Amino acid sequence: MAGTNAREIKHLPPAPAVILVSPQLGENIGMTARAMLNCGLTDLRLVTPKQGWPNPNAVAAASGADRVLDQVRVFQTTRDAVTDLTRVYATTARPRDLVKEVMTPRAAAAAQRAEMAAGQGVGLLFGPERTGLENEDLALADVIVTAPLNPGYSSLNLAQAVLLVGYEWWTAADATPPRQLDHGDSGPADKAELFAYLDRLDAALDRLGFYHPPEKRPGMRRNVHAIFQRAQLSGQEVRTLQGIVSAFLGAKLKRGPEALAAKQIESEENA
Rank of each mutant, 00 (worst) to 15 (best):
residue 95 P to G: 00
residue 216 K to Q: 13
residue 128 P to E: 08
residue 245 V to C: 09
residue 22 S to K: 13
residue 218 P to D: 07
residue 78 T to K: 05
residue 28 N to Y: 05
residue 146 T to Q: 13
residue 156 L to P: 04
residue 9 I to M: 13
residue 43 D to F: 04
residue 210 F to D: 02
residue 226 A to W: 01
residue 146 T to L: 03
residue 251 A to E: 12
residue 188 P to E: 10
residue 168 E to P: 00
residue 206 D to N: 07
residue 2 A to S: 12
residue 106 R to Y: 08
residue 265 I to F: 14
residue 162 V to P: 09
residue 192 A to F: 05
residue 268 E to F: 15
residue 194 L to V: 06
residue 60 A to M: 07
residue 8 E to C: 00
residue 152 G to H: 07
residue 85 L to Y: 06
residue 201 L to F: 06
residue 96 R to F: 03
residue 68 V to L: 07
residue 160 Q to G: 07
residue 213 P to A: 02
residue 58 A to R: 09
residue 211 Y to F: 15
residue 63 S to N: 02
residue 130 R to T: 15
residue 153 Y to E: 00
residue 40 G to M: 00
residue 219 G to E: 15
residue 51 Q to T: 13
residue 183 H to M: 06
residue 80 D to P: 13
residue 182 D to T: 07
residue 229 Q to H: 12
residue 5 N to R: 09
residue 10 K to F: 12
residue 33 A to Q: 09
residue 144 I to R: 10
residue 59 V to P: 00
residue 106 R to A: 14
residue 119 G to H: 03
residue 205 L to E: 01
residue 184 G to D: 11
residue 87 R to V: 14
residue 95 P to I: 06
residue 112 Q to C: 13
residue 31 M to I: 01
residue 74 V to S: 10
residue 144 I to D: 04
residue 132 G to I: 14
residue 141 A to H: 02
residue 192 A to Y: 07
residue 94 R to L: 13
residue 219 G to C: 02
residue 24 Q to E: 14
residue 167 Y to S: 08
residue 194 L to G: 04
residue 177 P to S: 12
